[in-house]
Amino acid sequence: MTELVTTVSSLQQAEALLSAGADRLYLGEDYFGLRLPHSFSREELSDVVSLAHAKGKQVTVAVNAIFHNDRIKKVGEYLAFLQEIAVDEIAVGDPGVIYLLQQLQITIPYIYDAADLVTSSRQINFWAKHQAHAAVLAREIPYEEMVPLSQAVNIPVEVLVYGATAIHQSGRPLLNNYSNFVQEHLEETDRERGLFIAAPHHPETHYSIYEDVNGTHIFANNDVDLMTVLPKLWQLGLQRWKLDGLYADETTFPKIVEAFNQARQLLDQQTASNEELATLDQVVQQYQPDERGLDLGFFDLDPDEVK
């Protein structure tokens, strides 16, 4: 069975997402997790967990930041809290957290998520040996590489099928440093501010950029949309699909999730046609924010194209 994992930005949106067909909600607090649509307080988090569980759905909490000493110290207590509220899974990218899970004998399953660094079946199986029960595949893996990878992995692999792809994380406040240099104060540098950068000689490009407690983040030019190639993923058995609504409109993101849910149902019933997927893709495009494009990311690249 194909699983739909979606980010969530509020309790209200969580309701809508679950109604739209999400099987698993992904959320967390900025202090512990990376690039989240909303930083959930513990109380808010508990409410979402209760809601999801009441509907028989699951929750993954992001504990995938790059931790320095000051923060890794607080992870143990956070993990205990997550265990107490019966979170179903955590996302982890720092091996220090895996070490802590063992030391503290915390039994929450984890999905290994180190952004661009998870690139091979052998690596994924390494984390499986360290009790990872799933892994998030880097967005830089083309379909051609997914084929052998999908046959060799020992645990499920999550693939981003919709949403923003992070391509850079700096520990420095790059926007503030720039604005200090030019002495033109950028009032806000957070995600809501909606800042972009364009590459030299490519004024049409629009890489989103923002700062938060984890540093500066830059995103790929367009959001990923794999709607039309879902049958290929499905056939490989790569059936844990993530939808990242970081840059989606809060109220219309569930519509996008609903479109993917319909596609998933058609595929699971083995009745999906290209025409139906194209129609569903129009729904995705309809709700995509104006200032952000959609494309297949690295999916259809020839592996030899990337040197």
Partner: peptide, 8 residues
């Protein structure tokens, strides 16, 4: 970036 990672 932290000592638990080093211990891992």
């Amino acid at each position: 970036t932290n000592y638990e990672t080093l211990n891992f």
